[in-house]
Simulated assay, not measured.
Amino acid sequence: MAQILKSRQELELLFAPTAEVGFELIEKECVDLILMDINLPGMSGVEALQLLKQNPETAAIPVVALSANAMPTDADRHG
Rank of each mutant, 00 (worst) to 15 (best):
D37Q: 00
L52T: 06
I4A: 02
E29F: 04
L49V: 09
G42N: 11
A70H: 02
A59R: 09
S67V: 00
I4G: 02
M1R: 01
S44D: 05
H78K: 09
A59F: 07
E24M: 11
A68Y: 04
A16D: 02
S44L: 00
V31T: 12
A60N: 15
G79E: 06
L13R: 14
E57K: 13
T73K: 10
I38N: 02
A48S: 09
L5T: 12
L66E: 03
A70S: 05
P56F: 00
H78S: 15
F15P: 14
V21H: 15
L51T: 11
E12K: 04
M1F: 01
N69Y: 13
V63D: 13
C30K: 08
N55M: 13
D74T: 14
L52M: 10
L52F: 04
I4L: 05
A68G: 05
K6Q: 08
T18N: 11
E47P: 06
E29I: 14
L66R: 08
M43P: 09
P17T: 08
L13E: 14
L35K: 00
E29G: 11
L66D: 01
N39P: 02
P72K: 11
I61N: 11
A75Q: 10
F23P: 05
P62E: 06
L51P: 08
K53I: 10
L5K: 13
G79S: 12
T58F: 03
Q50D: 06
P62R: 04
S67E: 00
V21I: 12
A60D: 14
D32I: 11
Q54T: 03
D76R: 13
A2E: 02
G45N: 06
G22Y: 04
Q3I: 07
T18M: 14
P17E: 14
A60I: 11
L51E: 10
D76P: 01
